[in-house]
Design a binder for these strands. Structure first.
Lengths: 248, 248
DNA sequence: AGTAACTTGTGAACACTGTTCTCCCACGCA
DNA sequence: TGCGTGGGAGAACAGTGTTCACAAGTTACT
């Protein structure tokens, strides 16, 4: 952005401001960027203010000029991860698929950075930057004909599932990061299958299904369960009438 | 709870040390108990090994004789919170209500101790002590006539929802613990309603529903959405397809 | 009996953490 | 020229999880 700094200053233009500060000024953006570098390299447990400062070649206290808290820094990271989300125009025909895409995209974003799901969990999702996304999500759900009270909590339900699933998923990877996933899965399946069948008949019977499938498949199935539950409150498929919900 | 010692140790559980003789005053149980005292009094952020040791009037390093890690201590707390769960005999008629009761009970347990939801989120739910509960849950789901692949992830889905919902719920309380819930709700509702209606029509329209209802109601509705989604995979209601034979 | 091994618990120490304090220095402005 | 201001540096404070050498007390064996 400042690639013309090496051009010598013409004698007739008096530099009103200091033209080129010797160092790039420290900004929130640069701090967040460095924090992501540390996070991906060392993981959440090693993500400390000192490490971020070291990454920037800067004193720790310099960070606190731009950021109030470590908590605020984490918030900024979360916001930046989702700030370029683009939800589609609400379409009553395909609202179910639109909702699923929202969750799929969220999971992919969380998986982009190591331990990101852990950060996402301890933070309130209603920041000003993310409000447009919630707004769009609501628009899609209402376009699907869901009653308002269902719409009002569907956002919570979906993001809770998305974040919770991804958290568990990445925790397994982290906990046994020495092995590949196929090895992990085999170990787990083996464990469940080795339980005493008289006391754990169902666990034994389902051992292959619990971990044998890929995470993608399991995420997709859970998503489908939720969307089916949501759709059960809406108009029968095929219609687009906004139907009142029938009790019991 | 010591009758399950013959359950093989899961591969992700680090082998713990020999159990201390029963006559020694300091035991794992006492440490866990003290940890709960500290947690309820000072919250999760202040729950440190030093505080737990101080609560017992004991040196910090003494804890490490009985507990490998702080992580293990947290896991023990989680286990103890759920170790006396009692799930009912599977009943194909009322399996949906049985499932809901499972989640309701879990939420109540998490709410019993301050910040407990935060602890629950970062721990693996498949410890040996908790396996019987998963087994029972599976039995109920299968009795409801759900296909095995749905049953296999329904447990994850339910506990993720339960823990995620409770986490968010308790985070709000913690973050604004000065005010009562009605005040918090009013503030939030006010905030959403005050957004520019041209850019956030749906948020404004739903502002009262998002926070106006009680947490109990919102939890119940989310639970119903999930159970409906699950039921959509099962036999049509009214029928009772003979489930896999249950040995009584 | 003596002795060795072991379990428990102690106090100090190490290497960190988030945060704040004082200080310094380069800049913009008068 | 002087001055104020604000960003950054470095040290310091009060913590954190964990480990270390060491001291008791108990048990087990020669």
């Amino acid at each position: 952005m400042s690639q013309q700094d090496d051009v010598p200053t013409a004698p007739w233009e008096r530099p009103r401001r200091r033209q080129a500060p010797a160092r790039i000024p420290l900004t929130r953006e640069r701090i967040v960027e460095a924090a992501f570098v540390v996070l991906d390299r060392d993981g959440y447990d090693k993500l400390s203010m000192r490490q971020v400062a070291a990454e920037l070649g800067v004193a720790v206290s310099a960070l606190y000029v731009h950021v109030d808290d470590k908590d605020e820094l984490l918030q900024l990271m979360y916001n930046r991860l989702f700030d370029d989300v683009q939800l589609p125009e609400p379409d009553p025909e395909t609202w179910q698929e639109q909702i699923k895409d929202f969750a799929r995209d969220g999971r992919q974003r969380l998986l982009r950075h190591r331990d990101m799901a852990r950060i996402s969990m301890q933070h309130v999702p209603f920041t000003a930057e993310l409000l447009p996304h919630v707004e769009r999500l609501f628009a899609i759900l209402r376009a699907g004909g869901l009653p308002d009270r269902v719409t009002a909590i569907a956002g919570d339900l979906l993001s809770t599932y998305m974040e919770g699933f991804t958290l568990e998923e990445s925790m397994w990877k982290e906990r046994m990061k020495d092995s590949s996933w196929t090895v992990i899965g085999a170990q787990l399946e083996n464990y469940f299958a080795s339980l005493p069948p008289d006391r754990f008949p169902n666990l034994v019977a389902l051992s292959d299904l619990m971990v044998g499938e890929t995470n993608d498949y399991r995420f997709e199935l859970g998503l489908d369960i939720i969307v089916r539950g949501l759709a059960s409150y809406g108009p029968p498929s095929g219609y687009e009438d906004k139907a009142e919900d029938e009790a019991s």
